[in-house]
């Protein structure tokens, strides 16, 4: 086990997959010589050379579209889109091409492609560089969606994504880049669709993802002091969704709190709420509750941005109310 930053874990996870499989190539803006604007591809050019680490023009459609074409040859391209907000620029290639080519050719064509991107607010980058659009990807059958919350999960989920034969969108959270954690030295592969129970508890289930896992854990620690025992689930992937893990936990606690950074309007938490309402309605002891980003563009002003994003205090307060309902 070595302690790595989340940022370094990305580069480490990519390098491990590139060492393992010569068909893995990385492409995107500033990923080679600069090591990525987020320094998440640092060292790849030195180790693997320009044949496998491609600095591209500023062309998001082409980054994804060319990766699709390259994937048809048997390569396993990992495309970086610098900000998740820019998924909008190449959405046609993601949602109408990558996600559908396998289906439209009756499985004759597969697109083993990973699209890595940075999402998340909290660093005052404004409305067009701070979103958490994992709910966009969630809405497209054919895509898999992974959102690692720890350095170990970054390595494990990247490995799982690269080895999956379906297109996977991996969201790395910019607020977590500096966070640190233990990463196994040996091969570490997480199968997509396996949630992690980060903390055991009996009074309520908190379902979180990516950066909101930390908020949920902070809140759970605070709640413990107030005699409320919260279970914290890190979904890790939205597609496939580990419904079994959520339902098993919820059926024990009968109270559900969902903490999501994307806007409440159409956010992934609504999907979890629907799941529990459909599958475990009679276990409910209190209304399903969501703490979500406000349904507004993210302001650049820090004070305003903080008001939009979920906070640990907000999770604690909401959980207390829920536990006492």
């Amino acid at each position: 086990m070595a302690e790595l930053s989340y940022r370094y874990a990305v580069a480490e996870g990519l390098a491990r997959e590139m060492r393992r499989d010569p068909a893995v190539v990385v492409l995107g803006e500033d990923v080679a010589a600069a090591g990525g604007v987020w320094k998440t591809t640092q060292g790849l050019l030195d180790e693997f050379g320009p044949e496998r680490v491609w600095d591209t023009p500023i062309s998001e459609q082409a980054i994804v579209g060319a990766a699709i074409g390259a994937a048809m040859t048997g390569l396993r391209p990992i495309a970086e889109i610098m900000y998740a907000d820019f998924l909008g620029v190449c959405w046609d290639q993601i949602a109408n091409q990558a996600a559908k080519l396998r289906y439209m050719t009756a499985g004759q064509l597969t697109v083993p492609l990973v699209i890595r991107t940075i999402h998340g607010g909290g660093v005052a980058k404004g409305a067009q560089h701070s979103q958490s659009p994992e709910n966009w990807a969630l809405a497209v059958p054919g895509l898999r969606v992974a959102c690692p919350s720890t350095p170990a999960d970054v390595v494990g989920l990247l490995a799982g994504a690269v080895r999956a034969d379906d297109p996977v969108v991996v969201f790395e959270h910019k607020g977590l880049l500096g966070s640190k954690g233990e990463v196994p030295d040996d091969e570490h592969v997480l199968e997509l669709g396996r949630a992690a129970v980060r903390r055991r508890g009996t009074d309520l289930t908190i379902v979180a993802l990516s950066a909101t896992v930390r908020l949920a854990l902070e809140a759970a620690a605070e709640l413990e002091g107030q005699d409320v025992s919260a279970e914290v689930i890190d979904l890790r992937t939205l597609v496939p969704l580990d419904a079994g893990c959520v339902l098993e936990s919820f059926k024990r606690t009968s109270r559900l709190l969902i903490v999501e950074e994307n806007p409440r309007q159409g956010g992934w938490g609504a999907q979890i709420a629907a799941l529990v309402a459909e599958e475990a309605f009679w276990y409910l002891d209190a209304p399903i509750t969501r703490v979500a980003g406000e349904s507004v563009p993210l302001p650049a002003a820090r004070g305003l941005e903080n008001a939009v994003l979920p906070s640990a205090d907000q999770v604690t307060e909401t959980a207390l109310k829920l536990a006492r309902t």
Binding site: V64, G65, M72, T73
Partner: peptide, 18 residues
């Protein structure tokens, strides 16, 4: 869809060159 395949051809050709 119009023109989308031009990108796939470009990427395919890049990979073929490699």
């Amino acid at each position: 869809p119009i023109g989308t395949q031009a990108l796939h051809a470009a990427g395919f050709a890049m990979a073929a060159k490699l």
